[in-house]
């Protein structure tokens, strides 16, 4: 009980930092992106707003989930790896994008897996946890320092305790369990063995304003983001737009175009 109440290492890390600390240089880009976006939504740095939209008058009205700045956006001190999602919102106050686009923007801004791992390693919480030899700077990869290795062991131990404790607590005292889970932030989705139903409950509790998408498919370990996994897993659109006639004859447009409503 005592170790739960005390501030633990896991409570000081973002979910992406926890992942990197656990898996080192084999941490997949996709997983880091998933948990980072979830973390930002939990912290209300970003928010999802449900809107009804109609792409055109021939199509039916559809419900869309738009990502936009959240309440905590302006006061939030972003970590380097979180900028993959926040960069464009920082530059445009009114920007909103579909969840799918937000995922794509994150993928694109993150660049390669190596670069994203590097960005996570820049976090102050992981300072002194990793080292990189000169050859690794060229071919990739990094190692744990002694400090990092002991942090990893500590984190694994903490996660194990949470994984054993939470399912029992959810059965006996759901309210307390939820309160404790909230202290983990996005790390809650790194816990295994909570089960689909419990995860759905946690989702409801955490993401009250986020509707569960119609294509939701439950699976252990991912929670809400499992629902959107298609967006993360899906391949990027290729240039299948066909051949359009060129506009190159429209000389001079770039030097001045005007529009008038009348």
């Amino acid at each position: 009980m005592e170790d739960i109440i005390m501030k633990q290492l896991i409570q000081t890390l973002t979910a992406a930092e926890s992942l990197l600390l656990r898996k080192g240089d084999s941490t997949p880009k996709q997983e880091m992106l998933k948990v980072t976006l979830m973390d930002l939504l939990l912290k209300q740095v970003l928010m999802i707003e449900t809107t009804e939209a109609q792409s055109n008058s021939r199509d039916p009205v559809r419900t869309l989930q738009k990502v936009r700045r959240g309440e905590a956006f302006l006061r939030y001190d972003a970590l380097p790896h979180e900028l993959v999602y926040l960069h464009d919102f920082r530059h445009s106050r009114d920007l909103e994008m579909s969840f799918r686009d937000c995922v794509r923007v994150g993928f694109e801004n993150a660049n390669s897996e190596r670069k994203l791992q590097h960005a996570v390693r820049l976090s102050p919480a992981l300072k002194d946890s990793f080292r990189q030899l000169w050859i690794q700077k060229i071919i990739g990869g990094f190692d744990y320092t002694d400090v990092g290795f002991s942090k990893r062991l500590q984190l694994e131990e903490e996660i194990k305790v949470w994984e054993e404790r939470i399912p029992k607590l959810l059965e006996s005292n759901r309210e307390q369990a939820m309160a404790e889970l909230k202290t983990l932030g996005g790390n809650v989705f790194l816990l295994k063995g909570l089960g689909i139903v419990l995860l759905a409950n946690i989702e409801n509790e955490f993401f009250k304003n986020i509707p569960v998408p119609e294509k939701s498919q439950g699976c252990g370990g991912c929670g809400t983001f499992t629902s959107y996994s298609g967006d993360f897993d899906g391949s990027y659109p290729t240039d299948s737009g066909g051949s359009d006639s060129s506009c190159s004859g429209d000389g001079g447009c770039s030097s001045g175009c005007g529009g008038c409503g009348d």
Binding site: C253, C257, G258, G261
Partner: peptide, 11 residues
């Protein structure tokens, strides 16, 4: 918009 907005490149 309920109106036509025309695009006019420079001459």
């Amino acid at each position: 918009l309920k109106r036509e907005i025309h695009h006019g490149p420079t001459r």
